[in-house]
């Protein structure tokens, strides 16, 4: 079994508990002054990578855990968090504030990064909670020509570089097996991410963060999708409350739902 060199892409997004507001110009969502944090699915990726090392789950051991993020200067915060959780080092690909990359560009970037870093396992979140595209992992696997296991709820390592992954699918679970190198995307069920302790946060400040640009990877921020407008969803009417069960039944009948 080869030693694992894990690449963990993380994204800085608006915190999951914040209700996003559409901006006045209807060009996007208001981000200024809004709390941001690591995409929840990416926390699962970092946690899983660290657990594979701590619990010695891989027969060949874990040689390296490298977190990577393409984002504005503040994306360094989520990279520090990843290192405080246990990643060894980080790569920050700086994008202008207010700019973002489409999943295909991110996948192309990660392909180059995985090749450069000699990664043999990339663990990504299954989707980012802002764009909700759920594309980057399978795109990356396609570009690299590697096998993929999406929406993983369990990852096991065997001999001869074999990885067995249980995936969440419609109606239940499915188990697939492939050989390294491979791409895995995480489902919420995979693990429970830790909180970084203060000593680890302090230690993370000393870990290495490499700074790069898109050009270093020979890429440009090309947009294939033009956002014409972003609007608030239609608000729901109603909010009626009834006194008792009979009232509930009556109202549902009135609404044609019973």
């Amino acid at each position: 079994m080869s030693a694992l060199r894990i690449l963990v892409p993380v994204k800085r997004v608006i915190d999951y508990a914040v209700k996003p507001r559409v901006n006045k110009a209807q060009t996007g969502v208001e981000t200024a002054g809004v709390k941001h944090s690591m995409n929840p699915f990416d926390e699962l990726s970092v946690e899983e990578s660290v657990r594979i090392r701590e619990k010695k789950r891989s027969p060949g051991g874990v040689e390296d855990i490298c977190a990577i993020s393409a984002g504005p200067p503040k994306a360094q915060d989520v990279l520090r968090t990843a290192m405080a959780m246990g990643a060894d080092r980080a790569i920050h690909v700086e994008i202008k504030d207010g700019d973002d990359l489409e999943p295909l560009t991110v996948a192309k970037l990660l392909k180059k990064a995985a090749e450069e870093q000699e990664s043999n396992l990339v663990i990504l979140g299954k989707q980012s909670i802002d764009d909700d595209a759920a594309q980057t992992g399978p795109m990356l696997a396609g570009l690299l020509g590697w096998p993929q296991a999406t929406q993983a709820s369990k990852v096991e390592f065997g001999d001869d570089d074999v990885v067995t992954v249980t995936k969440e699918v419609d109606g239940g679970v499915e188990t697939v097996r492939a050989k390294l190198p491979m791409v895995i995307t995480t489902d919420l069920r995979l693990n429970e991410p830790r909180y970084a302790s203060l000593p680890n946060i302090m230690k993370a400040k000393k870990k290495k963060m490499e700074k790069k640009t898109l050009e270093d990877f020979g890429l440009e921020n090309v947009k294939r999708l033009k956002v014409l407008k972003v609007t608030e969803p239609a608000p729901r009417q109603g909010g009626d409350k009834v006194e008792d069960v009979d009232g509930l039944i009556g109202r549902l009948k009135q609404l044609g739902a019973l």
Binding site: V29, I129, K226, V227, L228, K229, E232, P233
Partner: peptide, 13 residues
């Protein structure tokens, strides 16, 4: 997008 809190209209090129 954003868990259904915003609706984006996009043109695919």
């Amino acid at each position: 997008i954003y868990a259904g809190n915003a609706i984006a209209t996009v043109e695919c090129l």
